[in-house]
């Protein structure tokens, strides 16, 4: 019965109330065999990071449609580092302009999935980066 299950936190930082995307991805990841923890709307980076640590997740997926991704996504990465949890991989999704992506990647957000991304791309990202 021993097996390492991949655990993923799906969280929505910031103030927008558009959670269709976050719920879609949570459900799709569940259907692909992952354990998904869903925290709901309007989470602060601090509470996302504390949740990620308590839940001992392998990945944090951030969904944001308000335009605050350039501040909030890197903040999550930074707080994880401050809590010695930099091994938790952060990815993001939502309405993110193409030109913002390189800078986000550079600041430690491992992947950005924009609207219309097929779920299999997200799954293959997780499979490639998961701890075995």
């Amino acid at each position: 019965m021993s097996s390492k299950n991949v655990r993923i936190l799906i969280a929505k930082p910031g103030l927008d109330g558009h959670d269709r995307g976050a719920k879609y991805i949570a459900r799709a990841l569940k259907d692909n065999g992952y354990e998904v923890i869903y925290t709901g709307l309007r989470q602060t980076p601090e509470s996302i990071v504390q949740t990620a640590i308590q839940e001992d997740v392998d990945f944090v997926g951030l969904s944001l449609l308000s335009g605050a991704h350039n501040e909030l996504f890197p903040k999550v990465v930074e707080l994880l580092k401050q809590n010695q949890a930099e091994d938790i991989i952060v990815f993001g999704g939502g309405v993110i302009p193409e030109e913002d992506i390189p800078a986000l990647n550079q600041q430690g957000i491992k992947a950005i999935f924009t609207p219309g991304t097929p779920i299999k791309d997200v799954v293959s990202f997780i499979e490639k980066n998961r701890k075995t």
């Binding site: 299950n5 569940k30 065999g33 992952y34 354990e35 998904v36 923890i37 869903y38 925290t39 509470s47």
Partner: peptide, 16 residues
Amino acid sequence: TGGALLGDRLRMQRHS
């Protein structure tokens, strides 16, 4: 699938 959607904590998130 073995997957799970864990949503209980949604209701307790203010204690995070």
